[in-house]
Design a protein around this nucleic acid. Structure first.
Lengths: 150, 150
DNA sequence: CTTAAAGTGGGGAAATGTGGTTAAAAAGTG
DNA sequence: CACTTTTTAACCACATTTCCCCACTTTAAG
């Protein structure tokens, strides 16, 4: 179970050092198996253990090809995926320029544990998400939250 | 049952000393089990015994991933959670810089018992919250308060 | 007033993160 | 096809941070 938000920095080569805490969590789920880094339409990146990503990817690929919206989601989610065979000896992974650009990643990025996977956000993007979450409490209860009491 | 508001101070390292009274209350509910500290969209933090948080977290994770509002709530509530395995030998917990920033915590913070959990607020945030509660009495009775007589 | 418990702050060791350097591979060119 | 040049990936060493524990100060209770 991946959880928690950490602020990290991309170095000059575009490498992202995964904190030891999250590295251990990844290792306990994925072992030495590869990871998948892909783009999310909301301008963040998704980091999955390959085994967890495959069934999701397969479902996505089965979505109808002749619905424009389905097809473009498919393109972003599946088309952008990068396989990470292993982290380097210092526990870092390389984020390709294309993915960095997609998520507007600069020096400081946020790594967010979401249970089955991690999300990687730019500072500005994550700030926007927090604002959206606040707005989501106005008006109707969003779907899925009707029975939840904090 | 957690109750009452206490004013506390974060030390220079971002550590929060839980008062002995609340520490005992936590221990009687959670025992030696871990605690969970997470962010609330309204810019406070939530402190739950892990056992009480898990069912809530699981419900949240089941909310739809392709509804923007649900997804951003999910991101904040689940993505921000930090597991506190144990308090240090002086009964303190470390609030990560990310969570401190989220709730705008400075030196003085307020710890508010809310039955099943505690909320942690900045002074300014708590003041704002009290103002909002006053406004909530204008106009219609808020949902859930129709049958309550004080 | 004495004693014990709780709160506060600081110091040090170990683990973690950062940047640079070297070696290998791939791509491009004559 | 061979050689050169550029890019990519792995490794190593230093700097930094984090966490844990100890000691002091303060507050409350007997």
């Amino acid at each position: 179970m991946f959880a928690g938000t950490v602020s990290l920095t991309l170095d000059a080569k575009g490498r992202l050092a995964i904190p030891a805490r999250h590295r251990d969590a990844l290792a306990s789920v994925a072992g030495d198996a590869p990871l998948v880094l892909t783009a999310h339409p909301q301008r963040c990146l998704l980091l999955y253990p390959l085994a967890a990503w495959e069934p999701i990817r397969d479902k996505i690929l089965q979505a109808p090809s002749f619905d424009a919206r389905s097809q473009s989601l498919k393109r972003v989610l599946v088309g952008s995926q990068q396989i990470i065979d292993a982290l380097d000896s210092a526990g870092r992974l390389l984020v390709t320029p294309e993915l960095r650009e997609h998520a507007n990643l600069e020096k400081t990025v946020l790594m967010v544990g979401m249970g089955s996977h991690f999300e990687i956000w730019s500072e500005a993007g994550w700030k926007r998400q927090n604002d959206l979450a606040l707005e989501a409490l106005q008006g109707d209860t969003p779907p899925g939250f009707e029975d939840i009491s904090l």
